[in-house]
Design a protein around this nucleic acid. Structure first.
Length: 364
RNA sequence: GCGGUCAUAGCUUAAUGGUAAAGCUCCUGUCUGUGGCACAGGCGAUGGGAGUUCGAUUCUCCUUGAUCGCC
């Protein structure tokens, strides 16, 4: 366990970081987000740069005031968008490779995505809003993140695609490391900055990346890229390098957090992790409960006059029943998304709070 | 009462004298540093009765129902 101290309060770890890409947890206002026991949120440099632009946020007094969130905040650097709007879009990929595809590393050292251009200095994006050109490199990302004003910012990196072979990842890592140094040098603010370890599923590249990022004067670590989806695979990769990095500095795992993996990654030494699953799945009609995932769109739930989870004490479970939420979903009512988002965040936060309690008792 | 039009999946619509197609709905999955999506698979139909024909959802007649017009 740990306490991460920031200018906006202390985060008790291990901890889930809910995703507020566009300075909002979709469907919730900041007061509601706080009521889910969320301690810290992560917003996004790329998206806020496009809309509304960092100057607007800066004029409003920074992200905290802009969105009326008084607790700690992070901003992701835009490095993930290098992947998601590039190779991710080209191949319809997530950052995890599916089972049985480990040998299909079709992106080689000369591979390049269709919709953006990656250079040694940064990335040329084409805005999906209006097609306008947009360049984002380490300097640009850090300057934007300084204007946004989150408590913790991330170095600009390239999240490598899971289909990338060893040579591609090696080359990408050279860029990411160079960008890490420039990110660190560019930052003039008092914000904390985390450097990102990449290397996909290649042992020596992960080890090299951990060694290099650990040697720089970052305040914490981000761990990104493909970490395998098969049970045990993530632990295997983390065990390669987690023991080699400074134990005083927090470790944030980027974009990971299926319920069934959370305990494992905490055991592997992860303090923080952001994940869209609780909020994203809520908008697909899925509730997380002690009985597993429930798809509330299913017609059978119209006949269930009971809370989403009998053991849950969140505002939703105390006040609403499955039949009503199912009706709202099937009727296309937006409030359904809000109720499920609220419940799912409570469920995840309670789930992790329980792990913290068990750590205190020496059970984990 | 008379005349016309129509009847295909839960809904809206295709097609054909030779095994009936699609969209939505419904069912089962997928989704990890967020484009309120998207994707994969599945269940499911020629209103009822007779006739012509090797074979009718298609052509003919009757019937039932819907709809429009006229009185």
């Amino acid at each position: 366990m740990g306490f991460l101290e920031t200018g906006h309060g202390v985060v008790e770890t291990p901890c889930l970081v809910p995703v507020a890409t566009q300075a909002v947890i979709k469907t919730l206002d900041s007061k509601e987000a706080e009521e889910t026991k969320s301690q810290i949120l992560i917003s996004n440099t790329f998206h806020l740069h496009l809309k509304p632009g960092e100057k607007i946020v800066e004029k409003a007094g920074g992200l905290h005031k802009f969105m009326n969130w008084k607790k700690p905040l992070m901003t992701d650097s835009g490095g993930f968008q290098v992947f998601s709007l590039g190779f991710g879009k080209d191949f319809g990929l997530t950052k995890f490779l599916g089972k049985g595809m480990a040998d299909k590393k079709i992106i080689g050292v000369s591979g390049h995505p269709k919709s953006l251009k990656i250079t040694q200095d940064g990335v040329f994006f084409k805005s999906f809003l209006d097609g306008s050109k947009l360049f984002l490199g380490p300097k640009e990302s850090i300057k934007i993140q300084e204007k946004l004003g989150a408590d913790i910012i991330f170095a600009f990196d390239e999240c490598t695609p899971p289909l990338a072979n060893y040579d591609y990842v090696k080359k990408s890592l050279e860029r990411t490391h160079k960008w890490a140094e420039i990110s660190l040098k560019t930052k003039k603010s008092k914000q904390a900055i985390f450097g990102i370890i990449q290397g996909s599923e290649f042992k020596d590249l992960r080890e090299n990346s951990a060694k290099f990022i650990n040697s720089l004067d970052f305040d914490g670590f981000g761990i990104g890229g493909d970490l395998w989806r098969e049970r045990g695979g993530t632990k295997k990769i983390l065990d390669w390098f987690i023991p080699t990095i400074n134990e005083k500095k927090p470790r944030h795992m980027l974009g990971v957090g299926y319920l069934e993996n959370i305990e494992d990654i905490i055991k592997s030494g992860i303090d923080l992790f952001d994940c869209t699953v609780p909020t994203h799945y809520a908008r697909r009609g899925i509730a997380f409960t002690s009985e597993g995932k429930l798809n509330l769109k299913q017609i059978k739930f119209l006949k269930k006059h009971e809370p989403l989870d009998k053991g849950c004490t969140c505002n939703i479970c105390l006040n609403y029943k499955k039949d009503y939420i199912s009706h709202l979903l099937r009727a296309g009512e937006l409030t359904a998304f809000k109720l499920l988002t609220f419940h799912n965040l409570c469920y995840f936060n309670n789930f992790i709070e329980d792990i913290r309690e068990r750590i205190k008792k020496g059970e984990v």
